[in-house]
Design a protein around this nucleic acid. Sequence first.
DNA 1: AATCCGGGGTA
DNA 2: TACCCAGGATT
Length: 407
Amino acid sequence: MLNKALLQRRLLAWYRRHQRDLPWRRTRDPYAIWVSEIMLQQTQVATAIPYYERFLRRFPHVRALARAPMERVLKSWEGLGYYSRARNLRRAAQIVLAEHGGRLPEEPEALRKLPGIGRYTAGAISSIAFDRDEPVLDGNVIRVLCRVFLIRANPKSARTQKRLWKLAEELLPAGHASFFNQALMDLGATICMPSHPHCDRCPLRQAPIRCRGKACLAPTSMPAEAVPHGRGAACCALAVPRGPIGSPGGLCRAFAKGMQEKLPLRVARKAIPHYDVAVGIIRKGGKILIDRRKPEGLLGGLWEFPGGKKQGGESLEECLVREVREELGVRVRVLRPLARVRHAYSHFRVTLHPFDCGWVSGRPRAIACAEWRWVAPRQLGRFAFPAANRRILACIGAVPEMRGKRI
DNA sequence: AATCCGGGGTA
DNA sequence: TACCCAGGATT
């Protein structure tokens, strides 16, 4: 191991000055920190912030969430994606209320028994909310460690994962896991970024050196990180390092070799499929027919316009008639195309083709869905729709707050 | 070990 | 466009 104590000092000193001001860092409430960690799974900080604020207003504590109807929780999650997170979070809140008296357990092993909490989230809650010395390993930490320790193996392989977790654990400064973990993640998010990392501002690049200026009052015994910066004081505290790259004092092996942009190793991903999906805006007596997806699986529990994937050899119109019949047992007439909405999921892409439709015959039955409803256009905004469906709502002008927005 | 699960930001 | 993001659950 490189100079562990130096790395810890540098990182913690950098964090004290440069940490991000985030809403979940203004609280010590384990529930709030828990909510933030779930929202931040595969989700960028800036995206999660407004959801976090609103969610905590609506469900301020475990009991409120445990007792809330699933519909309301999903509506709060609408647009954030990975909707099983919302289901798991609510279910876990019910377990915490029933089995832990409404308080989150502190140990990672107990936290991991809750749905939606894996190794990362357990470590994050345990260290950040309860100040326990537990490591975390997320995308940011993986990147920082692969660079600092010049790990050229596939970071997703089980072998490398094991090695990275061990590193994350060994590096922890006793009693400071909360700040240290968050410092690693902040460094990865703001300095040690995937491409074009800001190595010139990295606290691990090289030791700050003392200047030889006569005005510098920094005693040689003082650690450079602890020296205040300023004219007539210890002006060298943050002096630009000199000397060749990778000279003694540099803590990043990738930077020393100029390999920081090549790590962590990227593994080629498989080509992702594309689907054309026909959806019907089915009107009858001024109302529109929507259905709710089954509670599990893709977009589970969310509402949508009836429709489905086009098969080879059929037209979009034929597809729509077939899908509505299979899903709801309703016969419709396809009137006119409305728009084209392209949307990318993590593992496939779709083009949605919404059509204006007229109801012909048949009372809807929940054949391949959880339930259905005829809804006045103005009421559509009350239901939780996936993001791609929201854009269809916008193009039929059903949701006032979305009128005029880009589609 | 591989696959599934959304949506948005960014260059 | 392709990659990435404070990952977890399932198979």
